[in-house]
C-alpha cells in the first residue's frame, strides 16, 4: 500500500501540492528569501506561539507549517525528502526509523540528555502521556475508573450504556495510535482484554485525538482510550464535564520528537528552530508561549515510564510484525 502511494506521488508531483493537508499555515512575510518548511503532526494552534516567538527578531525568514497525521508524515516525507526542513511527529517509532534510515542531519552541539535524543539527530521536546478521557456523566456516583482493569469492569457493568459510545485510535491509520497500542500490548495483557471489551461494545475508531475530544465534548462518546492528555488540557471549554485519567496500572508516555532533514536547504535556520523548541520546553510552564507539556525525566517517583528512544521501536514497524499485530487487534476490536 505504501509503495503504491509513493509511486503515485512520484508520478504526479503536482498532486502532492494539492495534498489534503489538515492544516497549512504560513508564518512571516510571504516575500521572505528563506523559507523553513515544517512537516508536523501537531495542531497549528499549539505551534503558532512557538513559531511566532521563533520568527521574532528574524528578518528574511518565513515558516510554512504543514499539519498531517503521523502515518502520512512518514509516507509524504519518504517520498519527498527534499521538500521539508524540519519534521515533527508524535510517532516516535516512525521518527526513529526515519533517522535510522539516514534522513536526519546530525546536530552535535545541542545539549540534550541522552534519553531525550537519538544519534544527535532526533530530539524529544515534550513528554505526553496517553490518557483515558471519560464523561463524568457516565459515572454519576463519582467512581471514575483509575486503571484499565477498573475501566474494563465499568464497561462490562453497563454494556447498554456504553455500546457505540467508546472510542480509541484506529491503529491502522494513526501512527501514534499504533505506537500507543503496541507499547500497551508490550506492557500487559490487560490491553488485549480492554480491546476485546471495547470491540464488543462496538468501539468507534478515530484518526486523531482531536476528533475524539470533539465527540467527547458533544457527548457522542463517553469513554475514549489513549487520548493525548495535552490536547484535552488545551480545550478549557470541555474541562467541566470531562475527566482526564492517567491509568494508574501502567501509563504510556510518548515524547514528541523533531529532526532536521538531511536534505534541508536552510540548515542554520532549521537547527535554530530545533534549538528554539528545546529552549522553549525547558522554560517555566507558560501556556501562552509553549502550549505543550515540557520534557520530563525518563521515569519519576510515580513509576511513569516514557517510551524509550531505541532501535527496538522499529520492531513493530516491521511489515510482518505489523501484519500480525493488526490482525490480532482487528480480531479484538472489529468484531
Amino acid at each position: 500500500m505504501r509503495y503504491f502511494f509513493s509511486l503515485m506521488v512520484c508520478l504526479l508531483p503536482a498532486a502532492l501540492w494539492a495534498q489534503d493537508w489538515e492544516e497549512h499555515t504560513h508564518f512571516g512575510p510571504l516575500t521572505a528569501e528563506r523559507k523553513l518548511r515544517v512537516l508536523s503532526s501537531t495542531d497549528t494552534s499549539f505551534f503558532a506561539p512557538i513559531i511566532e516567538a521563533f520568527l521574532r527578531g528574524k528578518t528574511g525568514l518565513s515558516v510554512d507549517y504543514f499539519v498531517i497525521g503521523t502515518a502520512q508524515i512518514d509516507e509524504i516525507y519518504r517520498a519527498h525528502p527534499n521538500d521539508y526542513d524540519v519534521v515533527i511527529s508524535s510517532a516516535m517509532d516512525l521518527q526513529l526509523k526515519l533517522v535510522n534510515d539516514g534522513y536526519a542531519l546530525q546536530i552535535s552541539n545541542l545539549d540534550q540528555p541522552d534519553w531525550a535524543q537519538w544519534r544527535k539527530s532526533l530530539f524529544a521536546f515534550t513528554s505526553e502521556p496517553a490518557t483515558v478521557v471519560v464523561n463524568r456523566a457516565a459515572f454519576p456516583d463519582g467512581a471514575v475508573p483509575q486503571s484499565r482493569q477498573e475501566l474494563i469492569q465499568a464497561l462490562r457493568a453497563q454494556p447498554e450504556l456504553f455500546r457505540g459510545r467508546v472510542g480509541t485510535y484506529d491503529v491502522r491509520e494513526s501512527g501514534l495510535g499504533y505506537l500507543f497500542a503496541t507499547q500497551d500490548a508490550r506492557a500487559s495483557e490487560t490491553f488485549w482484554r480492554l480491546m476485546e471489551v471495547m470491540g464488543g461494545l462496538g468501539a468507534r475508531l478515530y484518526c486523531c485525538s482531536g476528533d475524539m475530544i470533539d465527540d467527547l465534548e458533544s457527548g457522542e462518546l463517553l469513554v475514549a482510550y489513549n487520548v493525548l492528555g495535552s490536547y484535552v488540557a488545551a480545550r478549557l471549554d470541555v474541562a467541566d464535564h470531562l475527566e482526564v485519567v492517567l491509568p494508574s496500572d501502567f501509563p504510556t508516555t510518548m515524547m514528541r520528537t523533531a529532526f532536521v532533514t538531511a536534505q534541508t536547504f536552510v540548515e542554520d535556520d532549521a537547527v535554530a528552530f530545533v534549538r528554539h523548541l528545546l529552549a522553549m520546553q525547558s522554560q517555566p510552564r507558560n501556556r501562552d508561549v509553549f502550549p505543550l507539556p515540557s520534557l520530563k525525566p525518563m521515569s519519576d517517583a510515580s513509576g511513569h515510564t516514557v517510551i524509550t528512544l531505541e532501535p527496538a521501536l522499529m520492531t513493530y514497524l516491521d511489515p510482518l510484525k505489523r501484519r500480525t499485530f493488526i490482525k490480532e487487534w482487528s480480531s479484538a476490536v472489529i468484531q
Binding site: N100, G102, W118, R119, K120, R186, E310, P311, A312, L313, M314, T315, D318, L320, K321, R323, T324
Partner: peptide, 22 residues
C-alpha cells in the same frame, strides 16, 4: 511465514552511540 520476533531482538542492539540498525 510469520515472524513475530520479540521487542528485545532490537532492544539489545541499543548502544551508547545510538548505532543504526538494519
Amino acid at each position: 511465514v510469520e515472524v513475530d520476533f520479540p521487542y528485545a531482538a532490537f532492544a539489545i542492539l541499543g548502544t551508547e552511540e545510538d548505532d543504526r540498525v538494519f
